[in-house]
């Protein structure tokens, strides 16, 4: 009960913080509209040049898939790596370790709280805009879509946080995690279907995207395709498997990390 109350307090406090500074929301909105907008124009042109169909997919499906990636990215789960690294490097970790909280769950809720306001506002505005501009694919109007979308979004969120927490926890042992962060982040971007929609992946790359934690963290991008209706439970199963595996790794790593704290003392 205490954990839930604290989680709600963290999220409410950060939403209040973000509302007080609307400049950040506007910047996020402009960045997403530009990045996603440019991609969608490019895709529209490419699909048009190929008679509207590439690899069995149309522009409508690919556009929504890419949009889901960008919408998911507004949650900024990736930032948790850098936040942990900064806590370790600046010694701020000692402030949080002296509180009656679980450091990692505190940081996870902090990250959710940091992104949730921008996420909701931008996603709602962009979804309405995209619906008016290009319409909805039929796969998004069936009853199965919304519950499975929310389920994979939730599992993808947990998986993303676990991936980036593992990267962040490495800072307890190595000075600079940025090179590792860069590699992991690019793997998530590519296999998650940011710039190239997953429907256009060659078979081997599609398999890697399916069975790696990097791709699995972004399964929201798969929900728009027809295949999702028949294999959603397999993909959710893959996500659950990775959550268990990475959760165990995080548990062991954090146990060791706590004993490896060496904030500037003396």
């Amino acid at each position: 009960m205490k954990q839930i109350r604290l989680a709600i307090k963290i999220v409410k406090t950060l939403v209040k913080d973000r509302i007080q500074y609307p400049g950040r929301l506007i910047m996020d909105l402009v960045a997403i509209l530009m990045r996603c907008g440019i991609l969608l124009i490019l895709y529209w042109t490419v699909f048009k040049l190929n008679d509207g169909m590439i690899n069995g997919s149309t522009f409508l499906f690919s556009a929504w898939s890419i949009f889901f990636y960008f919408s998911f990215s507004i949650m900024r789960y990736r930032e948790i790596s850098r936040v942990i690294m900064q806590d370790v490097q600046t010694g701020n970790v000692e402030v949080l370790f002296s509180k009656p909280i679980s450091y990692l769950s505190y940081r996870m809720w902090w990250q959710i709280g940091s992104g949730i306001y921008s996420f909701f506002v931008i996603t709602i505005v962009s979804t309405v805009g995209l619906m008016l501009l290009i319409g909805l694919p039929p796969t998004m109007t069936i009853g199965l879509f919304l519950p499975t979308f929310l389920l994979t979004f939730l599992l993808g969120s947990i998986l993303s946080l676990l991936i980036y927490i593992i990267v962040g926890l490495l800072s307890f042992w190595i000075e600079d995690i940025n090179p590792i962060f860069w590699m992991v982040d690019k793997a998530v971007m590519i296999l998650g279907g940011s710039y190239l929609s997953v429907s256009l992946f060659p078979p081997l790359m599609y398999k890697i995207a399916l069975y790696s934690p990097f791709g699995a963290s972004q399964f929201v991008t798969h929900t728009v395709f027809t295949s999702w209706q028949s294999n959603w439970y397999q993909l959710v199963g893959i996500q659950l498997g990775w959550i268990l595996a990475l959760g165990l790794i995080v548990f062991v790593m954090f146990g060791k990390a706590k004993q490896n704290v060496s904030v500037n003392g003396g």
Binding site: V93, E94, F97, S98, K258, Q259, V261, S262, V263, N264, G265, G266
Partner: peptide, 18 residues
């Protein structure tokens, strides 16, 4: 003095350092 072990001790008292 600096580096004497004061902060390290405080951090052990609070459970931050093992």
């Amino acid at each position: 003095p600096n580096g004497a072990g004061k902060s390290t001790t405080i951090k052990m008292l609070t459970g931050i350092l093992f």
